[in-house]
């Protein structure tokens, strides 16, 4: 087969994989931060994140006809999504998890699944009231043609990169850098880590653990909100049930990287994004005589392949790629 085609396909995998990977990473951070402080898997995070996607949709829809600068619209969408998703997450913790703080671990997990289902239908109901079922993003022109006002350099025949792709990556990286700084170098970040490592002792240091837990949900939810908007921009639409699969994948990414680890969540997201896009194009290589069997592996195997990879990695590294292999209580 032609080398040019291979290069084309692989470059595409790389670009798409990184894009989706960054979106997964942002969402995965919400799972991993909450897990860090409460050892709880916040199954409602998939709906918190898609709520951000819905808010983003609404902002772009409402501002659509306005002549406002496209990047300003984006900023408004992101901020609105962060606020709504962040406070929604705080509310969920207050109502559904905090009262169960001392219950056996499975109980808040069930509560989380319940919240997740309820939220799906609340979103469906609210958008349904307005007669909207398929929330197709109305993106400003700048997003679909050029990136930050300039034509995307290598967006030629090889890989069709759009302005929105660059936006997804830039926003995601800004969020990741901001969060890393917050967690590692600020007073709040230290308190979050202290509460994650030893909640009782953090109280002796004067830290109000409940407040820190709320703030952690706020930050995780806000990141989820950004993830939702980026998801909507990237896939051009969201719907009330669209959070489930990417939610599971982001959770997978968090586990893959080592649950509780922030760099782990990012690495896990990128690995997962690249992997599933690679699996999605495997059938291209069926032209090579020895690899004929790949012909039947179509793009629909993306998800399955990613999860098989997850299982394999976890068999050999149960704590995840960057997780600590210890029994110590973190």
């Amino acid at each position: 087969m032609e080398l040019g085609i291979v290069a084309f396909v692989l470059t595409n995998v790389l670009v798409k994989g990184l894009l989706v990977g960054f979106v997964y990473a942002i969402i995965a951070l919400g799972y991993t931060m909450v897990y860090g402080v409460l050892q709880l898997i916040n199954f409602a995070h998939s709906e918190v994140f898609i709520t951000g996607g819905v808010v983003g949709f609404e902002v772009f829809r409402i501002l659509g006809p306005s002549p406002m600068n496209g990047y300003l619209k984006l900023a408004i969408a992101l901020i609105a999504a962060m606020i709504v998703a962040g406070f929604l997450n705080v509310l969920i913790e207050r109502l559904a998890y905090r009262p169960l703080r001392n219950a056996p671990r499975l109980v808040p997990l069930i509560s989380a699944i319940g919240v997740s289902l309820v939220l799906q239908d609340v979103i469906r109901f609210l958008e349904g009231l307005a007669g909207r079922f398929n929330l197709v993003y109305v993106l400003p022109d700048v997003f679909t043609q050029r990136a930050f006002g300039v034509p995307v350099p290598f967006s030629t025949a090889i890989v069709p990169v759009q302005g929105k792709d660059v936006i997804v990556i830039v926003v995601a990286i800004l969020m990741l850098v901001g969060l890393t700084y917050l967690v590692n170098y600020t007073r709040l970040g230290r308190a979050i880590r202290a509460v994650a490592q030893d909640r009782t002792t953090s109280g002796l240091m004067g830290i109000d653990a409940n407040r820190i837990i709320s703030l952690t949900f706020l930050i995780g939810g806000a990141l989820g909100g950004v993830g939702g908007v980026l998801f909507g921009i990237f896939f051009s639409k969201v719907d009330p049930y669209a959070g489930t699969i990417p939610g599971i994948k982001a959770f997978t990414a968090a586990v893959l990287g080592g649950i509780g680890s922030i760099p782990g969540a990012v690495l896990g997201g990128l690995v997962l994004g690249l992997l599933e896009n690679l699996i999605g194009v495997l059938n291209v290589f069926a032209q090579v005589p020895a690899l004929g069997f790949l012909k039947s592996i179509g793009a629909e195997y993306k998800d399955i392949g990613a999860f098989i990879a997850l299982i394999l990695i976890l068999i050999f590294r149960p704590a995840g790629l960057l997780g600590r292999n210890t029994t110590e209580k973190v």
Binding site: A191, R193, Q197, T200, T201, M205, G206
Partner: peptide, 24 residues
């Protein structure tokens, strides 16, 4: 209160442990 068993935050550096002591 210096608790029994010291209860140092294991994944914080010495400096960060002291910073946390000064949280207030």
């Amino acid at each position: 209160h210096v608790p029994e068993g010291r209860r140092i935050f294991p994944q914080l550096t010495v400096r960060e442990n002291l910073d946390i002591g000064a949280y207030k």
